[in-house]
């Protein structure tokens, strides 16, 4: 017993060091598992609240640019609307399609916190359960696809952006109609990798990449980015470097997309797995 005490006293710094290392490892393992849960903890909500207060202060700095962007988007939407209004002026009978529902509902939100310098990046937006925002809803902006909602609290939500290795988005090359999977390699926050496109498909630098209709989180044909470079990797598949259309550092206003069919498709898929 005496020797044990002497051992502890002698090596107390080393023992303390090992204990604290163990504690940090336990914390790391626990929080990464905790991330799987869909609800944000009290700590994260408080943090999100603090982020929003800070963002309230800094938002004025980028007000002018943001207004210009919204103006641009308005012009685009107005032109599209004009197109729809101009179609079929002779045929004036209105028909309401009662069977088909509106597929997607958009909700505007503001980003209160962004990280682009980590490996596991994430965004925080100022809508949550109170605004009927839940996990697995897509987030897009006027520039293109942003990410997926992963966790929510009463009035905030955490978004998993494309620039996180855990994020996988199914995409389509517009010109060749080939489908691929977009993921991030943690190198550059303006670039991502598109994999799974077979070698026989004609890919060119500058090709536009949009969301595929396979993804039931995002609406189809939302801009993702353009092909920056490509090379053949792992046998006969391309590895395409995509420059993302969204600049996460400048992003402020986004839309949360609620897909009406998502829950149905999801339950169908999960049911068939069993």
């Amino acid at each position: 017993m005496n020797t044990l005490f002497r051992f502890i006293v002698r090596y107390h710094t080393l023992l303390l060091f090992l204990l604290l290392l163990g504690l940090s490892i336990v914390l790391m393992v626990r929080t990464t598992n905790y991330q799987q849960s869909k609800v944000m903890g009290v700590v994260s909500s408080t943090r999100a609240w603090a982020y929003e207060r800070i963002d309230d202060l800094t938002t004025y700095l980028s007000l002018k640019k943001e207004n210009e962007r919204l103006q641009e988007e308005n012009t685009l939407l107005r032109n599209q609307l004009n197109h729809y209004l101009a179609v079929d002026t002779l045929y004036t009978i209105k028909q309401y399609d009662t069977i088909k529902r509106t597929d997607y509902i958009y909700k505007s939100a503001r980003i209160v916190n962004t990280s682009t310098n980590k490996v596991k990046n994430r965004l925080v937006i100022n809508v949550g359960q109170d605004q009927n925002v839940g996990p697995d809803m897509g987030v897009i902006s006027s520039d293109g696809v942003v990410g997926v909602v992963t966790k929510t609290s009463d009035s905030y939500a955490v978004v998993l952006p494309i620039i996180n290795p855990e994020s996988h988005t199914s995409c389509r090359l517009v010109r060749s109609n080939a489908e691929g999977m977009l993921s991030w390699d943690a190198v550059n926050y303006r670039e991502a990798l598109l994999t799974g496109v077979p070698q026989h498909i004609d890919v060119q630098v500058g090709d536009t990449i949009v969301t595929s209709s396979n993804s039931n989180i995002y609406p189809p044909n939302i801009l993702v980015g353009t092909v920056k470079s490509y090379e053949v990797r792992s046998g006969n598949l391309y590895e395409i470097k995509v420059s993302l259309s969204v600049d996460y550092k400048r992003l402020r206003n986004v839309y949360v997309v609620k897909s009406d069919s998502y829950a149905e498709i999801d339950s169908l898929l999960n049911g068939s797995e069993r």
């Binding site: 710094t13 080393l14 060091f17 604290l20 290392l21 504690l23 940090s24 490892i25 336990v26 914390l27 790391m28 626990r30 929080t31 990464t32 991330q35 700590v43 943090r47 990280s115 980590k118 596991k120 994430r122």
Partner: peptide, 19 residues
């Protein structure tokens, strides 16, 4: 607590250099 979502990441690295 303030900058990452993974608790213990910086704690581990700091404990190592502290020792």
């Amino acid at each position: 607590f303030f900058t990452t979502d993974i608790l213990g990441l910086h704690a581990f690295a700091c404990t190592v250099i502290g020792y």
